[in-house]
């Protein structure tokens, strides 16, 4: 995880240098000059890697951002002086906060999950247990279940596996435990081989 984060940071800040490296690799495969590596082409138009690709000086931009940050901080410090900061409890609307009241990671992602539901295909169900089951006025407990359907297994791997299994099932008819049939297989194979050897022209 850490190496992934580091790699993302490195590629972001030093994108220009990294792109030059990649272009050199591509060029060695493609045997043409740097300036004309095609990425995509539509007839006579295309996207090519020109000289300025990822050419922005990212560290300079990062320095610019930090410069403004420091400038803001210094100006505020100079104008306002050292600020009095007091620490009080988090805003709780007057009722003591419990750990359950902070948003959970599932809940954070829930909105986006709902929007992309056709792709993510999750299922959520609510189960309610009543104290009076016939009239259902008094609830005793409720629970919510969330389960994800594995799309790749369901739509890709399982159908392929099914095809292979059915083929294998057909093939398994050969193996049915009769010794006599196995001896017949041996005989047929021998005869076929002999016939093939005889019919084939001598090389």
């Amino acid at each position: 995880m850490g190496s992934l984060a580091f790699a993302a940071l490195f590629l972001g800040v030093y994108g220009a240098a990294a792109t030059r490296l990649f272009v050199r690799i591509a060029e060695s495969v493609n045997q043409s000059s740097i300036a004309q590596i095609p990425i995509m082409s539509f007839g006579n138009m295309g996207f090519t890697v020109r000289n300025g690709f990822a050419g922005l000086n990212m560290p300079a931009l990062f320095l610019l951002l930090s410069f403004f940050l420091l400038a803001t901080w210094l100006i505020m410090r100079a104008v306002l002086g050292k600020q009095r900061i007091s620490k009080k409890i988090t805003w709780d609307c007057g009722f003591p906060l419990t750990p359950r009241m902070e948003i959970t990671s599932t809940a954070f992602a829930y909105s986006l999950m709902t929007i992309f539901r056709p792709i993510l295909t999750y299922a959520d169900s609510t189960k309610t247990v009543y104290q009076d089951p016939n009239l259902r006025h008094f609830v005793s407990s409720q629970s919510v279940h969330l389960h994800l359907v594995d799309m790749y297994m369901k739509y890709f791997y399982f159908p392929i596996a099914r095809v292979f299994c059915s083929i294998a099932r057909q093939m398994s008819r050969i193996q049915n435990g009769y010794i006599n049939l196995y001896i017949l297989y041996v005989l047929v194979t021998l005869v076929a081989l002999l016939a093939w050897a005889l019919i084939l022209p001598q090389s």
Partner: peptide, 15 residues
């Protein structure tokens, strides 16, 4: 009353 389940959280509003 607490609702069980993964990722259920509570939001208190008021008084």
């Amino acid at each position: 009353s607490k609702v069980d389940g993964e990722g259920i959280y509570e939001v208190p509003v008021g008084p």
